[in-house]
């Protein structure tokens, strides 16, 4: 593998990747659930940085807005609402046999993934559809007055693809969100008829 160590992006990648991994470890290892939640926010920020390195700007923005901004706020809200205390340290290491087994299996899993990824052949490149082969790709929208109409730029491309090619899934997801909203309200509602 030829790595251009001079590329700044590689250094940025290492930094952001390190943030992600470190914060993830903190999520699962810290006893205090509030600290876990905060670490997860940090992990999401790091991941957004990785997306940005990859030039997936739209997704990086969405990551910060939706995940770090909405979902994690919700989680911290719940943690505060339920007044979740610190877990005792021993909670994590209950039943040593089971823990050993889990650790072993997961590490095996990790090993499989990494070795497979590194030893696999070149990832095939499919011919571009509705886009050029440039990193900053574009979406062909058709012809207008003899000139090809193209949506350029990451956000435009993703938007064009969403609303033109993947319109049906988009609508279905909106229905899903509606269902989720109603469901969440129904499940969490306090039943007024019963005494708690």
């Amino acid at each position: 593998m030829d790595i251009d160590l001079n590329q700044v992006s590689f250094i940025f990648f290492l930094v952001f990747a390190g943030i992600v991994v470190g914060a993830s470890l903190a999520v699962i290892l810290h006893k205090n659930p509030v600290v876990s939640a905060a670490s997860l926010v940090l992990a999401f920020f790091g991941l957004a940085g990785v997306y940005a390195i990859m030039n997936a700007i739209f997704i990086a923005t969405m990551q910060v807005l939706v995940y770090a901004g909405a979902i994690m706020v919700l989680v911290i809200f719940v943690v505060m609402l339920l007044s979740l205390r610190e877990e005792t340290h021993l909670e994590i290491w209950k039943n040593p046999l089971k823990q050993a087994m889990i650790v072993l299996f997961v590490l095996v899993f990790l090993g499989i993934i990494i070795s497979a990824v590194n030893y696999s052949s070149d990832i095939p490149k499919l011919p571009p559809q509705n886009g050029t082969s440039q990193p900053d790709y574009a979406y062909n929208l058709g012809q207008k007055e003899g000139l090809p109409l193209v949506a350029k730029g990451n956000t435009a491309t993703v938007g064009a693809a969403t609303f033109l090619e993947y319109l049906l899934p988009f609508e279905l997801v909106s229905v899903l969100l509606l269902a989720a909203v109603i469901g969440a309200v129904v499940i969490a509602k306090r039943d007024k008829l019963r005494n708690l």
Partner: peptide, 16 residues
């Protein structure tokens, strides 16, 4: 969840 993971490991193993 552990059983699910075990199953996933087996499948991944076979696939790769």
């Amino acid at each position: 969840a552990l059983y699910i993971v075990l199953g996933a490991i087996v499948v991944v193993f076979f696939l790769f």
